[in-house]
Amino acid sequence: MNIFRLVADLMHLASIFILLLKIQKTRSCAGISFKTQLLYAIVFVTRYLDLFTTWISLYNTIMKIFFIASSIYILYLMKYKFRATYDPILDTFRIEFLLGGSVILALIFNYDFIPMEILWSFSIFLESVAILPQLFMLSRTGEAETITTHYIFALGGYRALYLCNWLWRYIFDGHVEVYAWIAGVIQTALYSDFFYIYYTKVLHGKKFELP
């Protein structure tokens, strides 16, 4: 564990709490993409299957259970409790392509052609593009509640810090994880426009609006 990874994990954790806070405080899931949330639930469930096979640490186990449980809880909130506040007209990104593309990539790029490894690769590739429906929704509405932008920032920042973590581990442990690296770079790149607007507007006290 190094500082980048710890802060990254805490940001990831924070992003989920911010999202829950946004939904509970405003009693609305307006501005949140159900499709992105669905993809994250799929990512967590397919990646953390090793909960049943491998013990790493209490920290690791608790975080994994939390990510799976919270992602499913958010789906429940959006689908049932606050269903009336969700606008499917704005959430029209075709996730079939993201899912299909991730399946194909996982079948080609994996460490072993067994279900667990293919699903792990699948989750890595899917995570890298899972934010697209949310960013697409943002581009359609052209603006966002500030708390929603904090959520997206924390979620994007987590993988950017993982890049620092991987660089650290490469330098000090010689550890290289090539698929996660590539996916992580793509994932962070997809956020770059968002980061720029977040930095120039939200952090200067202005509302998040697309130029």
């Binding site: 990874r5 994990d9 990831h12 090793d50 491998t54 790493i56 640490s57 690791n60 975080m63 994994k64 990510f67 460490y111 993982y162 973590n165 581990r169 442990d173 550890h175 290289v176 994880e177 090539v178 698929y179 996660a180």
Partner: peptide, 10 residues
């Protein structure tokens, strides 16, 4: 070795 440590991350 490539990939050997990856399972300890989230």
């Amino acid at each position: 070795e490539i990939g050997i440590h990856r399972k300890d991350e989230l």
